[in-house]
Amino acid sequence: MSVYEKLKALQIELPMAAAPAAAYVMSAQAGKTVFLSGHLAKKDGKVWEGQFGKNISTEEGKLAARGIAIDLLTTLQAACDGDLSRVKRIVKLMSLVNSTGDFTEQHLVTNGASELFNEVFGEQGKHARSAFGVAQLPMGACVEIELIAELV
């Protein structure tokens, strides 16, 4: 099953690609490796604000991370000249989770993105990753995730 068939089976329609919000680009390529800038969680089209351990649950965070993964797929598709079949492998995710000092489930929040990449790309979606708790993110976002992928 192709990546696009898997997306359709998951009832996922990729949104319009986002524009950078500051002085950076959404993706940069070096050889066959593409680096995607961090994407913030969104809810109802706005930045999904919250801090884990204070006013947002781990389960909500998994949904936020899954939503980010969909946005990352849109940016990755743009970096692949519109063709996600050019993705050889998802190499690494880095997840920043807006957390109180005693919240320790950053890895579970990040699973929302990791699980989606595994569903969409199969073996090629399995990746290395880091999940960090941070004191704050831009615009109060609950989660930010960046991605590194290898292209064919």
Rank of each mutant, 00 (worst) to 15 (best):
Q51W: 10
Q51F: 11
Q51A: 12
F52H: 08
N55A: 04
N55Q: 15
I56Y: 04
I56E: 11
I56P: 05
S57G: 02
S57E: 14
T58H: 09
E59Y: 02
E59Q: 07
E60F: 00
E60H: 05
E60T: 05
G61C: 06
G61E: 13
K62N: 01
A64R: 07
R66T: 00
G67A: 09
I68T: 05
A69Y: 01
I70Q: 02
D71N: 15
D71M: 15
D71T: 14
L72R: 10
T74A: 15
L76A: 15
L76H: 08
L76S: 10
Q77H: 01
A78G: 07
A79F: 14
C80S: 08
C80Y: 14
C80D: 11
C80P: 07
D81I: 01
G82H: 06
S85I: 06
S85T: 13
S85M: 10
S85E: 15
V87M: 07
R89E: 08
I90Q: 06
V91D: 12
V91K: 14
K92P: 04
K92E: 13
L93W: 14
L93V: 14
L93G: 14
L96W: 10
N98M: 08
S99F: 05
S99A: 14
T100R: 06
T100E: 13
T100G: 08
T100V: 15
T104I: 12
E105R: 10
H107Y: 09
L108Q: 02
T110R: 00
N111K: 15
N111G: 06
N111H: 12
G112Q: 05
G112A: 13
G112F: 04
G112I: 06
A113V: 13
A113W: 09
S114I: 09
E115M: 11
L116S: 04
F117H: 06
N118I: 05
N118M: 06
V120P: 11
V120H: 14
F121V: 13
G122K: 10
G122C: 12
G122R: 14
E123C: 03
E123W: 04
G125Q: 09
A128N: 08
S130A: 15
S130P: 02
S130W: 01
A131M: 01
A131C: 04
F132A: 07
F132R: 02
V134S: 06
V134R: 09
V134E: 06
L137E: 15
M139C: 08
M139P: 01
G140F: 14
G140N: 11
G140C: 11
A141M: 03
C142W: 02
V143R: 01
V143T: 07
V143P: 06
E144S: 07
I145E: 00
I145L: 06
I145Y: 02
E146K: 06
E146I: 12
